[in-house]
């Protein structure tokens, strides 16, 4: 019966971020928070494992004070208890800081058989946190997992890489990062949403984690963030006659030396 901890990030929904045309800066004033897409798969996988094998799932998130907004959504997806670390350092945290904080928190929370992550966050997509946390905790790491099962203290997983799938076996405790294709995250039912309000959550104070000030200083600092702008010719043929459009496109392709 595995004791699982699933780590997730509360991010801005990138669908609502607009690029300001005047200076290409990002306008996220209308962007709402969400549990990072792939982390929802990690939460779902932990919930499924526990539904199948017994055991328990806790959740852990490190973020700015807005992370508290995530608790209800998180708990409605299966975890029994949510731990949260709210600190201003998260605003500028790089993956090094995030891993330092999460690893210290996991040490404090105690022994887990499985620590799950999504393969990367939907905002930064650094794809670093799982392997970093495993390195800091001295645990083996199975990254990019497409399928997994747990029997006793043995975890079997299928990792999907660019040109192959790899079947691996490891004994718990282990850190796992999951791919989006591993499952389809549930849409919480009304009962689950209402039930989430009754589930416990607990703040983990960053000051209690025994971290040095430099552990919270990012080594990778974002200097500038600008909207990406496509520089394209945008020559669009939209006559009613498809044949006419095709003829025009053919001459364009010929002019580019492409046909």
């Amino acid at each position: 019966m595995p004791k699982c901890l699933v780590c997730y990030k509360w991010t801005l929904d990138e669908q609502d971020i607009k690029i300001k045309p005047e200076d290409l800066s990002l306008d996220s004033s209308r962007a709402k928070g969400k549990i990072s897409d792939f982390d929802r798969n990690a939460i779902e996988e932990a919930a499924l494992l526990v539904e199948k094998n017994g055991g328990a799932v806790d959740a852990l998130s490190y973020g700015t004070p807005t992370v508290k907004q995530s608790l209800k959504d998180c708990l409605s997806r299966g975890p029994e208890k949510a731990y949260w670390i709210a600190d201003a350092s998260a605003e500028s945290a790089d993956a090094n800081v995030t891993a330092n904080v999460l690893a210290a928190a996991i040490r404090k929370l105690g022994q887990y058989d499985l620590v799950l992550f999504g393969e990367g966050s939907s905002d930064q997509f650094n794809q670093q946190t799982a392997a970093r946390v495993a390195a800091l905790l001295g645990l083996p790491c199975l990254s990019f997992v497409q399928k997994m099962s747990v029997e006793g203290d043995v975890v079997k997983a299928t990792r999907k890489l660019e040109d192959c799938v790899e079947n691996v076996t490891v004994k718990t405790p282990v850190v796992v990062s999951v791919l989006s294709e591993i499952n389809k995250p549930r849409i919480p039912s009304l009962k689950q949403v209402l039930g989430a309000a009754k589930k416990p959550n607990e703040e983990v104070k960053i000051a209690d984690l025994g971290l040095k000030p430099e552990d919270l200083q990012p080594k990778a600092v974002r200097k500038s963030v600008k909207g990406f702008v496509m520089q394209r010719k945008n020559i669009i043929y939209k006559e009613t006659s498809a044949a006419e459009n095709v003829a025009k496109l053919k001459s364009s392709l010929a002019a580019e030396g492409l046909c």
Binding site: A95, N96, Q128, V133, A135, L136, C141, F144, E162, V221
Partner: peptide, 22 residues
């Protein structure tokens, strides 16, 4: 930056206490 490479790089970065650009 293959997936295997990202796994290795993240591990090494954590042990070095270093920043990493993906």
């Amino acid at each position: 930056g293959t997936l295997r490479g990202k796994h290795v790089a993240s591990y090494v970065a954590a042990k070095l206490n270093a920043g990493m650009t993906t």
